[in-house]
């Protein structure tokens, strides 16, 4: 694994809470990954398009509005439709426990809630990235 892991940090939907996304973007960059941050207000189409263009290994979705069940799934199903099966998808935000297993079934491999140590995200990516 000599090549740097490439990560897209994305903010789907209308949610403007970007503190977590920005912190994770910086932490991953400081851990030696290549990070692209989409900025706010991304549709699933925009996120998947950027993921393809930037040829990323990981997509990190951040949402604190509560719309994760709809918007995270929009991204994972579009990835499946486009055949991008080797992109690791992780997510974070205000996500109740009972939603986590559903999100995992839908292809969000790791879900990181409030209080997560940045290193745990780094470790998870290194362990699970497919490249």
């Amino acid at each position: 694994m000599n090549e740097k892991i490439r990560v897209l940090v994305a903010k789907p939907g209308l949610d403007g809470h970007d503190r977590g996304a920005k912190i994770v973007a910086r932490a991953l960059r400081d851990a030696g990954m290549e990070v692209v941050y989409t900025g706010l207000h991304q549709t699933a189409d925009m996120i998947v398009e950027t993921a393809i263009q930037e040829d990323v290994n990981v997509i990190g979705l951040s949402l604190l509005s509560g719309a994760h069940m709809t918007l995270f799934k929009d991204v994972t199903s579009l990835l499946k439709k486009k055949g991008l099966n080797d992109v690791l998808v992780i997510g974070g935000g205000i996500i109740p426990d009972e939603d986590v297993s559903n999100l995992k079934k839908a292809g969000v491999s790791g879900v990181f809630g409030p209080g997560t140590h940045c290193d745990d995200i780094v470790k998870f990516i290194r362990k699970n990235v497919k490249k």
Binding site: L64, S65, T70, D74
Partner: peptide, 18 residues
């Protein structure tokens, strides 16, 4: 908050959430 009605396409998934 963004001045969209509930039936706008960008409102998807967000109705009444926060």
């Amino acid at each position: 908050l963004y001045g969209y009605d509930t039936d706008h396409q960008l409102s998807r998934g967000e109705f009444g959430k926060c």
